[in-house]
Design a binder for these strands. Structure first.
Lengths: 217, 217
DNA sequence: GCCGCCAAGATTGTCGACAATCAGCAAGGG
DNA sequence: CCCTTGCTGATTGTCGACAATCTTGGCGGC
């Protein structure tokens, strides 16, 4: 009966979601016994899930001191985003070299929807499109190694990412950057695609710093 | 008594070394019971060690099918090295911005030793210096996030890396590249340091492809 | 009153045993 | 003769219980 398998894996993802959604705050202690009761699974499974999350950098375990939700400082967030900058630059360059005509028009369509969302003031929708654009570029790039690292890093930043996307004025800055990225890939110019992507994410880093400074008021 | 702790951790590293040193070949199956006997530890500890190695990308576990030493194809090796290229480029740029005078002279010294090693034909020594140079640059860069990813990726490539370092003619190609990197960092020119590092690792990728083509004859 | 120390509770680390699952082989039917 | 099917040994997945360790609160001494 594979029901146990599904239960164990479901619980693992439930725990991941609970942390990602902010149900457990950064620094909060994750007591194994509590998680057992919470998700109706054994401690063995809880430990396996915690090790998974540790590998993804979402929790940190100290020997004999248990697991905590990892706290990501501003400096770490900047470092992580710097790494994303060069990796997504690499992926964008490869995307420019590999893009098909069908994918090119899909990029264009996203660009159009983005412009519409911005002029209509639909920031939430713009955020979704942003994610879809970066995802499509990574699909086109087809760089499995870079992809999985980027995905891991993204998980560590959900909190910060969320704050950025709601920051007023961001779309006005990032929309033209996104347009440049799309254009460079459509013209199959790897160097231009890489530098456009890097410029874009460099401005995300600036936004990160600004937002953090704002929050400390 | 912390003896057990040390034993468990020692066994973990012993298993890692056994895989890294090539004692277990890529694709080889790692049977938990055998590892228990081999290292004199319980299955629990073996499983923990295997999960560690999985996180590092050294082994791959399939449900109910056990753990295998991960096979790194040429394409994957190229991808991994591409990621290293952009990450070490990022680190080199930061190193150029942060290098102290003492570190600058240490870089110079390594450069001198490298020239000597090449002219003396001491390839093994040159390989060690190569590793020391890259390590020092990463120390100077002080980019923890990029560092740990680079270190993880390096582990997955030990086999290929080894073949490259013994490839005749490599030092003649890589020595001037190393010299350019050192010079750019010493002159505190981040852009030059990044592009020098990327050129260097791009040529490593070429070497990877050549060696693989040679091996298939 | 303050500091260090000890005991008890709570939490994590480890283990051996049992259950679930898979690979290989033999027997039977087409 | 080949394919399917059921069995059997081997291997991995899961669990509950016990041991080791840390934390907390109270006690005694200075």
């Amino acid at each position: 009966m594979p029901a146990d398998d599904q239960k164990a894996q479901a619980a693992r993802e439930a725990l991941r979601d609970a942390i990602l959604s902010g149900e457990y705050l950064p620094g909060e202690r994750l007591v194994e016994a509590q998680l057992c009761e919470r998700f109706g699974i054994s401690r063995f499974t809880v430990r396996a899930a915690l090790q998974d999350l540790t590998a993804d950098g979402l929790v940190k375990v100290e020997r004999n001191k248990g697991a905590h939700v990892r706290k990501v400082t501003l400096d770490e967030a900047v470092e992580i985003t710097e790494v994303r900058m060069v990796l997504e630059g690499l992926v964008a360059a490869r995307a420019a070299a590999r893009v098909t005509d069908a994918q090119a028009s899909e990029l264009d369509e996203i660009g159009l929807l983005m412009r519409r969302a911005v002029s209509a003031g639909e920031f939430r929708r713009y955020g979704d499109l942003n994610q879809r654009l970066h995802g499509l570029i990574r699909t086109i790039g087809g760089h499995h190694t870079a992809d999985s690292i980027i995905e891991t890093l993204r998980g560590q930043l959900v909190r910060h990412q969320f704050m950025i996307s709601l920051h007023p004025g961001r779309p006005a800055i990032s929309l033209p950057q996104h347009e440049r990225i799309i254009e460079a890939i459509r013209e199959r110019d790897p160097k231009a695609a890489e530098s456009a992507m890097r410029e874009h994410i460099a401005s995300v880093i600036e936004a990160l710093r600004d937002i953090d400074a704002t929050e400390l008021r």
